[in-house]
Design a protein around this nucleic acid. Structure first.
Lengths: 350, 350
DNA sequence: CGGTTACATGAAACCGGTTACAGCGAGATG
DNA sequence: CATCTCGCTGTAACCGGTTTCATGTAACCG
């Protein structure tokens, strides 16, 4: 009893499994089993082991455990700190992170950050994943389905990508229903009585950019509205690009009475351009964005937008990667539903 | 030669140090030294070891290394996913994260995410830190200098907190010059000819809230302006709180001609309240915020604000934690400078 | 030329867990 | 009573590195 109490003071006792075993009068193997395979150990013994462990504040050493089992219970999060341009930041990185972290915690996994910054070699994260025995990897807005990632997946490490269509034996991806979301937006504008509906698209080479444009076109067709090439301007997903694109739209012969902007940042730029032209939103031109970033609710008159299930990205990615870690085949791509959030930019003020 | 080539195909060869040693005709000890203590090993031998390692794609197993050395080269990032209210998000979490990650990478450290979500016990992150042999911990917007963290620091694990004044043998913190920033704001408003300067403060129990209010008062005194109790309204750092606080200010007998708002989110709410009252910014009331969040530049007429060195938080935290890991005593608190960013909300349009 | 020294390396223990395998006692069965 | 089973536990090897200590060799020096 004395020694136990003595140890207890030192909250930071880094007791080993052998020490705990000695205190309990059993072998290290039994202690290990008491924790990892409770069924095979006598109930009395197990109870005593757990109690003593609590008393002395025993915590297993994860490094030793990983070394022995080759399972680290860690997944890597690969994200570009300087993606397309310096200062680039994913529109809702934090929401994804919270969703991912929460879902992983519930399943007993930790998250190791692996940024792919410029200075390092491309597959620095691949080496890190190997060195740390990562059980899986999630890529957020990774540039491309690059050879590094492909090698990683091919070598058996489960990979989940966000918004990039990667597929393989051990790889899948999560994305939003961009086509459906764009169609929601256009349908909404049509329901508001708008007929001359233009769009500011994202870069054609990006997946979401292409899909949202596709949705815009699909819905236009379904509604029987004409396709006007001068009503389609490509932006860059940034405020400045949206601003420039809107100006071009306003220079056209016939002015649109509504515009679907494929990203909220661009939509903010578009709103500004419309204001500068002396026109009013939504009276002269209705605007619908995409993403539902924080700013959307704050910029007057409130930006109607297509919301993505931001935390859902993280949750879905976590589920996918864990299921593959547990041995399941790569699940099919997960397409998250989108919802329309109506604010002032598309509906007349009361 | 043959076996080496053969191994090379299998990109995922998980070669061990003994295998590499065998290929080089040396002992594992020498290989280890070639990597970790190059000086003591013959240049020729080292060269051959490194070359062979590259050929077979050898990567040391970090778990084994950590087990042996008790150094994991990982620091934990503790952050509240559900701090004061669900959905709460740090205003520039991502910028801090980028700064932190970058600075840590440069020094050879990785970042392990340790969220303190509600369901878990308070010191879950302490246990995680111990289990994973974390070399240090950074806390972002941690609730308080709580017993768990204190125990962690007392046990010798270096801790760095952001915006919370924690001090100890192995603990320090990083914060912005809130007082100085607030003074900048008030001085600027004074220079613009404003004399009836009110403030919407942050919650008094928060460190930044209290300090920014202090700075407001200090500068008022220095300028010889009167202290009017009805010109000080406490907000909550959120849009709604800023909105409500501004309405109270507008109800006062005498209307302020300027208001220093201790947070940009609140400032957005204040702008809205001013607009709803039929007043114009900056003509009737000038507004200066604090933080320089993304929205500040986007909301018309552009919010003048006191910018914090967001990435600097991360960098400073990384430097502090690494220096402590390297054995140095806890460095003094780091107070990051703030700068005034002038936009339309405080200066008359041209 | 004997002795000291510096340098480079190897053998083996160790870090703290897990797990295959063997062993042991008690109860069941022939 | 001999044997078999079952349930529980211990022994020892192993995971893949690091590090102490001893050793062998070459250079250096009086």
């Amino acid at each position: 009893m004395k020694p136990v109490t003595a140890r207890c003071d030192s909250v930071w006792s880094v007791a080993t499994i052998r020490e705990l075993a000695r205190l309990c009068g059993v072998s290290p193997a039994t202690v290990s089993r008491a924790f990892n395979n409770p069924a095979v150990v006598n109930a009395k013994t197990r109870e005593q082991v757990l109690r003593t462990a609590r008393q002395i504040g025993y915590l297993p050493n994860e490094s030793a455990r990983t070394l022995a089992t080759k399972k680290s219970f860690m997944v890597g999060l690969v994200w570009d700190t300087d993606h397309r341009r310096p200062g680039w930041r994913h529109p809702f990185f934090q929401d994804i992170l919270i969703g991912l972290k929460t879902a992983l915690s519930e399943r007993g996994y930790h998250l190791l950050m692996l940024a792919t910054s410029g200075e390092q070699s491309d597959d620095a994260y691949v080496r890190a994943a190997r060195r740390h025995n990562l059980d899986g990897v999630v890529m957020i807005d990774s540039g491309t389905w690059d050879p590094s990632l492909r090698r990683l997946a091919a070598s058996g490490v489960p990979c989940v990508s966000l918004d990039r269509p990667v597929r393989g034996d051990r790889a899948t991806y999560v994305t939003s229903d961009n086509v459906g979301g764009a169609r929601l937006a256009v349908r909404h504008l049509h329901e508001q009585g708008r007929r001359a509906i233009a769009t500011i698209s994202g870069p054609a080479h990006t997946r979401p950019g292409a899909e949202r444009l596709q949705g815009y076109r699909d819905e236009l067709s379904r509604l029987g509205l004409p396709h006007r090439p001068d009503f389609v301007v490509e932006g860059d997903f940034y405020v400045a690009g949206g601003h420039a694109a809107m100006r071009r739209l306003l220079e056209a012969d016939e002015r649109p009475d509504a515009v679907f902007v494929a990203g909220d940042e661009m939509a903010v730029g578009a709103l500004r351009a419309i204001g500068e032209a002396g026109l009013k939103v939504p009276e002269d031109i209705a605007v619908v964005g995409f993403d539902d970033i924080e700013v959307a609710a704050l910029v007057p008159p409130g930006l109607t937008t297509v919301a993505q299930d931001k935390a859902g990205f993280g949750t879905a990615a976590a589920e996918a990667v864990v299921s593959m870690i547990d041995g399941a085949a790569a699940p099919p791509p997960r397409i998250l539903p989108t919802t329309l959030i109506v604010r002032g930019s598309s509906t007349p003020p009361l």
